[in-house]
Design a protein around this nucleic acid. Structure first.
Length: 488
RNA sequence: GGUCACAUAGCCAAGCGGUUAGGCACCGGUCUGCAAAACCGGCUACAGCGGUUCGAAUCCGCUUGUGACCUCCA
């Protein structure tokens, strides 16, 4: 099998993936800040890296997948009078900050379950790793790349940039950053506006606070990921993922901190998923055009024509490459919904396919095509295109226009299911799974009555049976001999 | 303003120098009492202008348009 190739943001090129310590692979992905309900944007990285996690595991790697929960309220802006999101929300709802954290973490988990996103191996919280973060800040201070100012600790970007390239991930030059930095309000504490906090002294009204050698306060914006990835994956690890919007400054800061604290580069492959857009514009909390996952699932949103099944959302996301923007629309979602239904139907049909003495379709080539797509930087849309090629073949076999041996069919069943369920992480449509044993028998009886009516040319009756069944959600499709039915 | 992306048929979306991407929609046909499903066929596009090449959606340049990042964001 061909090797797995991943696009590394750091080198801006596709590289063959080689783990540092095979068969083990370490993956760190930036998770959500839990101060609000999960929205469509959260689904993209979760699903993208879920597929990576699944595929690496499928390939036989022992993957340790770490996805954090940010539960320390980061300030809204760089100025001292910025607002802590979690504390703000807590004040609004008149509850403890940790209640906010708990509520939205639970909600996030629930939505991820619905999308069939596997749980990460470790899901560390920033608030649970304050000592590690303090320790890391101390290391950086000791190394001389940070300074204390009014109880806060800042990273000295200028000094770092003298020997390293601050901005190498996002392709930025420090001088340019200086030129484009905006208002310097409340930044008197810093030597340079682009310096970032490792530790922030808490203002009196700031509820979330911890003791530190410098002041009662809280860790800086970016430190948690460096501290937790180092703790669980080591000083150097394989893959770090996240949304493209985190590239700068978040990941840039991580690179700098880890380099100084650990004395070496921490991440080997940086992967970034692109954004979901709505009418061509980024879907973002601050833009107020976000759609919550719950709203998608219930259809309760002015922009939604109907409710969409979580698997439709998952399939929709997988039909675009993770590095491309994906434009949301009802039309696109409904196209995915129908396509997914066709794919699922064919999976149900596959095991019962009539078999013959020879196989007239090229299964090996198909399989190779599928793996090539996955190996080419997780090109799920291409994989799905190949899956649909096989759907056509399955239908042709069903129609007797192609044939397959029993051995090939049984192998195909396994392979097809692996692609769809194990790797892409789709779930069988729950609604079509019959939960009653009586229903099929009843249906058999009704349909035989209808068959009789048809035989007697009593089409008024046969149509009435079909129409009435249709009204209660059962569709009937006539075949050459008899008829089949399905719910939905 | 700086940096960087992207512009593909009605819609979504692959494509990484030379063969039909794929899904949805639409239009014919087969099948059927009718329908649905399924199958076969049709629609076959690459923002514009130049350049490189035997050959470009694919490489280079310019133009136009859109977006992202430069502040928290997935």
């Amino acid at each position: 099998m061909a090797e797995l190739i991943l696009y590394n943001t750091l080198t801006r090129s596709k590289e063959i993936f080689e783990p540092l310590h095979p068969p083990r692979v370490g993956v760190y992905v930036c998770g959500p800040t839990v101060y609000g309900d999960p929205h469509l944007g959260h689904a993209r990285p979760a699903i993208t890296f879920d597929v990576l996690f699944r595929y690496l595991s499928y390939l036989g790697y022992q993957v340790r997948y770490v996805r954090n929960i940010t539960d320390v309220g980061h300030l809204e802006n760089d100025a001292d009078e910025g607002h802590d999101k979690i504390a703000t929300r807590a004040r609004l709802e008149q509850i403890e900050p940790m209640e906010v954290v708990q509520r939205y973490s639970d909600h996030y988990h629930q939505s991820m379950d619905q999308l069939n996103v596997l749980k990460p191996s470790i899901e560390p919280r920033a608030s649970g790793h304050i000592p590690e973060q303090i320790e890391m800040a101390e290391k950086i201070l000791k190394a001389g790349y940070a300074y204390i100012s009014n109880g806060s600790v800042y990273f000295d970007v200028e000094k770092y940039d003298a020997e390293n390239h601050y901005g190498k991930l996002s392709g930025r030059i420090l001088d340019d950053l200086l030129a484009t930095t905006r208002d310097l309000d409340g930044q008197q504490e810093k030597r340079n506006p682009f310096d970032f906090a490792l530790w922030k002294k808490a203002l009196p009204e700031h509820i979330m606070r911890w003791n530190s050698p410098w002041s009662p306060g809280f860790p800086g914006w970016h430190l948690e990921c460096s501290a937790m990835s180092t703790k669980y994956l080591g000083e150097t690890f394989d893959i770090h993922g996240g949304g493209m919007d985190l590239m700068f400054p978040h990941h840039e800061c991580e690179i700098a901190q880890s380099k100084i604290a650990n004395g070496k580069d921490s991440v080997r492959y940086w992967m970034h998923n692109n954004m979901i857009t709505i009418n061509g514009q980024k879907m973002g909390k601050s833009l107020g055009n976000g759609i919550l996952l719950d709203q998608l699932f219930s259809g309760d949103h002015p922009l939604l024509e109907k409710a969409y099944n979580p698997m439709t959302i998952r399939f929709f996301i997988l039909q675009a490459h993770y590095r491309s923007t994906l434009d949301f629309s009802n039309e696109a979602l409904q196209a995915s919904e129908k396509g997914l239904a066709r794919l699922m139907k064919s999976i149900v049909m596959l095991p019962g396919l009539p078999t013959g003495n020879n196989t007239t379709i090229n299964i090996e080539e198909w399989k190779t095509n599928c793996f090539n797509a996955l190996n080419d930087d997780l090109n799920t849309p291409i994989l799905i295109a190949h899956l649909f090629d096989m759907v056509r073949m399955i239908n042709l076999i069903s129609d007797g226009k192609e044939s397959i041996t029993q051995m090939d069919r049984d192998a195909l069943v396994l392979q097809f299911r692996q692609f769809v369920f194990d790797i892409l992480g789709l779930l069988e449509d729950q609604s079509s799974a019959g939960d009653s044993e009586i229903l099929p028998k009843v249906m058999e009886m009704i349909l035989s009555l209808r068959q009789e009516a048809k035989k007697n040319k009593d089409f008024a009756l046969s149509d009435r049976i079909r129409d009435e069944l249709g009204k209660i959600g059962i569709s009937v499709k006539d075949k050459k001999d008899g008829a089949e039915w399905e719910i939905g």
